[in-house]
Simulated scan of single mutants.
Amino acid sequence: MCLALPVQIEEIQDENTALANIDGVKKAINVALIEDLQVGDFVIMHVGFALKKLDRDEAEKTLALFSEIDSSLTAGS
């Protein structure tokens, strides 16, 4: 099973690379497939590649859902 995550762009390093915030962890990702990328944008990331821009509201809902799932799994252990 594969999982793509919404991540927020914190810094654009060059035309192909940007620094993304992945739940507090900063990672350089490939953004060559995305046009008109700006700091603060959310993208869907899969295996280090940004696949497409994501609406801020949709990204925040998805991240909240991931957080809720994590909390329920952690509470059960």
Score class of each variant (00 low, 15 high):
residue 63 L to N: 14
residue 64 A to K: 14
residue 43 V to L: 05
residue 70 D to I: 00
residue 75 A to Y: 02
residue 26 K to D: 03
residue 30 N to C: 10
residue 26 K to R: 14
residue 42 F to I: 00
residue 38 Q to S: 05
residue 11 E to V: 03
residue 53 K to S: 04
residue 45 M to E: 14
residue 33 L to F: 13
residue 51 L to M: 09
residue 16 N to Y: 07
residue 49 F to G: 04
residue 17 T to G: 01
residue 61 K to A: 10
residue 52 K to S: 15
residue 68 E to G: 13
residue 36 D to V: 00
residue 23 D to K: 15
residue 63 L to S: 14
residue 13 Q to W: 04
residue 13 Q to S: 07
residue 9 I to L: 11
residue 77 S to D: 12
residue 43 V to Q: 00
residue 33 L to R: 14
residue 26 K to N: 06
residue 75 A to N: 11
residue 33 L to W: 11
residue 40 G to N: 06
residue 32 A to K: 09
residue 24 G to M: 06
residue 56 R to T: 06
residue 11 E to C: 02
residue 11 E to K: 15
residue 59 A to H: 06
residue 30 N to S: 12
residue 71 S to C: 05
residue 50 A to W: 10
residue 43 V to S: 00
residue 62 T to N: 15
residue 67 S to D: 15
residue 19 L to C: 01
residue 57 D to E: 12
residue 22 I to A: 07
residue 14 D to K: 13
residue 70 D to G: 06
residue 28 A to H: 11
residue 70 D to E: 12
residue 73 L to W: 10
residue 39 V to Q: 14
residue 67 S to E: 15
residue 72 S to E: 07
residue 23 D to M: 11
residue 51 L to H: 05
residue 34 I to T: 04
residue 48 G to A: 09
residue 57 D to S: 11
residue 12 I to Y: 04
residue 31 V to I: 15
residue 77 S to R: 12
residue 68 E to T: 08
residue 70 D to V: 00
residue 17 T to M: 09
residue 71 S to Q: 12
residue 28 A to T: 10
residue 33 L to G: 00
residue 44 I to H: 08
residue 62 T to M: 15
residue 22 I to F: 08
residue 47 V to Y: 08
residue 62 T to C: 14
residue 11 E to Y: 10
residue 66 F to L: 10
residue 14 D to I: 06
residue 76 G to I: 11
residue 58 E to F: 02
residue 60 E to S: 03
residue 65 L to M: 10
residue 22 I to R: 14
residue 43 V to C: 06
residue 61 K to F: 13
residue 35 E to F: 04
residue 65 L to R: 13
residue 26 K to M: 06
residue 36 D to I: 01
residue 13 Q to L: 15
residue 64 A to G: 13
residue 64 A to I: 01
residue 75 A to M: 05
residue 22 I to S: 09
residue 20 A to T: 00
residue 36 D to F: 03
residue 37 L to D: 01
residue 29 I to H: 01
residue 69 I to S: 08
residue 47 V to K: 10
residue 36 D to K: 03
residue 56 R to A: 11
residue 73 L to A: 09
residue 18 A to F: 01
residue 75 A to G: 11
residue 16 N to S: 12
residue 13 Q to C: 06
residue 59 A to V: 03
residue 17 T to R: 14
residue 17 T to C: 08
